[in-house]
Design a protein around this nucleic acid. Structure first.
Length: 239
DNA sequence: ACTAGGTTTCCTGATT
DNA sequence: CAATCAGGAAACCTAG
């Protein structure tokens, strides 16, 4: 009973509009929302800021509860203008970590190069720590990046390309409904290179999110889910 | 080699 | 009846 029987063909019913989207998403960090790494921090949108924050917490194995995401409803420009003191004030014990992460990105040679500027810049952040220098090449870890709930969120947010796969039931409350459950499951499976993904299995993974409060239970309504307090980046104003 | 988190797979039973 | 929902258990996979 293990994954030996995985790669058998499955009827392809993925709407064509999504084929491209999905191919893109197989590129490292290339899902439709992973672009903060390719963008200098001061040009980040609010959404980029969310992504950076989430990625940094993730990379340091910190729970999203550690932070009040609401305090980061700001653009990259605003973020970059925050002083170390402000960071500490807003994020408490995580201030130093976040500040130094941002500082590293600001000074990443990836963003310093384009205009023929210094190649190697010594990394010293405002606290005298001596970080980075290793993976300044955006490669970082976990190119697999997207978790299921983010994948779902991104489909919802990309309404122009979303050919009726999932639909908002209550946009402001974060309630949504699967319209084509099996098609979404196949898309997810395609992303994970698993052609035997089904809605039955996908939904089990969704139910695990209740405990982590990434999703809230919506009972009585089939195929309906609701984003919980630990899901971020889905609100209109986050974009 | 080992570990933890995040699924994936399977299953039984309840609901719609 | 078929499709979903609920979770427990255990296998899997991958970054660290």
């Amino acid at each position: 009973m293990n994954g030996q029987f995985r790669n058998h063909p499955v009827p392809q019913q993925i709407p064509s509009a999504w084929s491209n989207f999905d191919l893109e998403s197989n590129a490292p960090g290339g899902y439709p929302g992973g672009s903060w790494l390719q963008t200098p921090p001061h040009l980040w949108t609010k959404y980029h800021v969310w992504e950076w924050l989430q990625h940094t917490l993730d990379a340091n194995q910190l729970d999203a509860n550690c932070i009040r995401f609401h305090d980061f409803d700001i653009t990259g420009e605003q973020l970059c203008s925050m002083s170390f003191e402000i960071f500490n004030h807003v994020t408490g014990p995580l201030g130093p970590l976040l500040f130094s992460s941002l500082e590293s990105l600001k000074w990443s040679n990836k963003f310093l190069q384009p205009m023929g500027q210094p190649l190697m810049v010594e990394q010293r952040d405002c606290q005298g720590k001596e970080h980075q220098s290793h993976k300044a090449n955006g490669k970082k870890h976990s190119p697999r990046g997207t978790h299921l709930w983010e994948f779902i969120r991104d489909i919802l947010l990309d309404s122009e390309k979303n050919p009726g796969l999932i639909k908002w039931e209550d946009r402001s409350e974060g309630v949504f409904r699967f319209l084509k459950s099996e098609a979404v499951a196949q898309l997810w499976g395609k992303k994970k290179n698993n052609s035997s993904m089904t809605y039955e299995k996908l939904s089990r993974a969704m139910r695990y999110y209740y405990k982590r409060e990434i999703l809230e239970r919506v009972d009585g309504r089939r195929l309906v889910y609701k984003f919980g307090k630990n899901a971020c980046g889905w609100r209109d104003c986050d974009r």
